[in-house]
Nucleic acid binder design. Sequence first.
DNA 1: TTAGTGACTGCAT
DNA 2: CATGCAGCCACTA
Length: 112
Amino acid sequence: MKEPDFAERVYWLVTQIPYGQVATYGQIATYAGSPRAARAVGTLLRHSLENYGELPWQRVLNAQGRISFKGDLGRAELQRALLEAEGISFHQGQCDLRRVRWAPREVFWDVD
DNA sequence: TTAGTGACTGCAT
DNA sequence: CATGCAGCCACTA
């Protein structure tokens, strides 16, 4: 049985984020075993639509509870709309992570 | 194989 | 509070 690679761990973890809750890129990277790979998580999710259309990618935000984008405003608006539809509210462009942050009860993968 | 890029992050200015 | 910047790491050309 092959050990799941980083990308597989990331995609699986994102599917574990409960409806109405969110996780940060750093959280996903940490749970996937690479605490410093937050940026890599973003890289993977950027292509998630084409590779994993089922993924609830909208539930992943940056460490400040904000939607991360440099361009592509359309997708940012879609993400916010999807989250608000789940009951997550935004104030000044950011949501209250203390309230909606996903706090898994189990350990998935240890840091390498 | 090397170099460049980016849906990140924490610390320093 | 706003930038800047180096560290990180997977992906692509």
